[in-house]
Design a binder for these strands. Sequence first.
DNA 1: AAGTGGTCTAGACCACCGA
DNA 2: CGGTGGTCTAGACCACTTG
Lengths: 262, 262
Amino acid sequence: MLRQRKGNSGGTGLSAAEGVEVGAADTPRYQQVKAHVLGLVAAGALKPGDRVPSEHELVAAFGVSRMTANRALRELTAEGKLTRVAGVGTFVAAPKPRGAMLELRPIREEILARGGRHSAEVLRLAREEASGELAAAFELPPGTPLFRSEVLHREDGRPLQLEERWVLPAVAPAYLAQDYTSTTPSDYLLAVAPVQEAEHQVEAALPDARLRRLLEMGAAEPCLLLRRRTWVAAPAGPRVASLARLWYPGGRYALGGRFRPG
Amino acid sequence: MLRQRKGNSGGTGLSAAEGVEVGAADTPRYQQVKAHVLGLVAAGALKPGDRVPSEHELVAAFGVSRMTANRALRELTAEGKLTRVAGVGTFVAAPKPRGAMLELRPIREEILARGGRHSAEVLRLAREEASGELAAAFELPPGTPLFRSEVLHREDGRPLQLEERWVLPAVAPAYLAQDYTSTTPSDYLLAVAPVQEAEHQVEAALPDARLRRLLEMGAAEPCLLLRRRTWVAAPAGPRVASLARLWYPGGRYALGGRFRPG
DNA sequence: AAGTGGTCTAGACCACCGA
DNA sequence: CGGTGGTCTAGACCACTTG
């Protein structure tokens, strides 16, 4: 059996009530099918909950094999745009369950991306015993030894973030021996211990006198406080590896992000 | 030649030579292949940048067809775990490019998820002309009419968020006619105009006297301010549809999120 | 030239659903 | 029962990279 190859578009004259299709050049057929289905939704011909053409119908309409139609619908399903029910059909997925995302970029990358100059000053690098609150955050008994670092990050000389961090010694035994003026603690940790999970929390807080001085803030200026906990894999399940408190001058900094929903 | 061996779908009890693999049971073969490759990485046998078995090798090792091996590797690639280069090979993907995400949940859902009771009070619902700053945010000339709403959201009676919002009349002509004590403005907008893109920015700010009173905040307490802009599709490209300023009492609220990389 | 991934086909068996 | 998706195969042609 021969098979075509190349030249597809105009071939099978079955364009059912369609005209807005993207001219198929040499784009893969499964992508053409995907685009077609997406087009039906975008054009309003299909609304959430509506049934989309079955694989069989797409086979007939596009002259592709069922595997190709299947791949198109399967990928759209994986992308969250369709839902499928075996034995019933394929349907336009309900719109996003909502929930926007705020992207948090590492301070160093963010500064460099803006064209700024990043510098860091190590204020503290020591071992300490977990107190009550800290121990609770680490899910460990109080008194457990932890590594602690305090680094002030500057952009073009102006303080932008105070990074307080506690690290479980087991996941980064050499943590205290690093030079954090060239690498950030975050970068080092990512290099030595792959993060399995992370938790973030953002709040507004007033700085104490020391913090206000370090960040060179005005008297009545609030701070943005970003708390972060990260987990690493361990034999007995994930365990807290690191806890960080990142303080930003509220008047000078905003966490930001832009995203495109499905 | 045709030599259709017994059934081979999701229920085949076909068990070829198997090693340390998870009990094959009736899991699809492409998933078994995926699990095998992931296992090599998890076990440390393969590190980022290393070459993983080619499709051909997987075909030989598992006795599957090339399409099945291809699907396994293709899906792992789509999931970001592998990278492929045609003509060269398939490789373990580099670790996370970094960049965490903070999930922002709609206030109403968040309250209900906690088991709280949500109530809303409409403080303002009017038409107004875009002033300079507002017009700039909407990318429109000053003086353009906008809809404006101000809604105070409470959890179990305690103020939790003041929502100031401006909406382009064209995207929601009936915006001012809604009852925002039962539906949030955000929910209404999502229903009438699918968001194509969104931008978020979080900062810390001190509330003015009115805001402090509305949110029932202490004297020296900062606010968390979340700014949001959303875009909708338009003939001449995406246009700003809505702008919101969400004020939270800093001492009583924290934006939070947890996510799993990999 | 040999190997790799990228794509495609024309069948196939299965489990499931609804009438 | 017929339709749906879920999976699988044993080939195939192509473009690409490498030795």
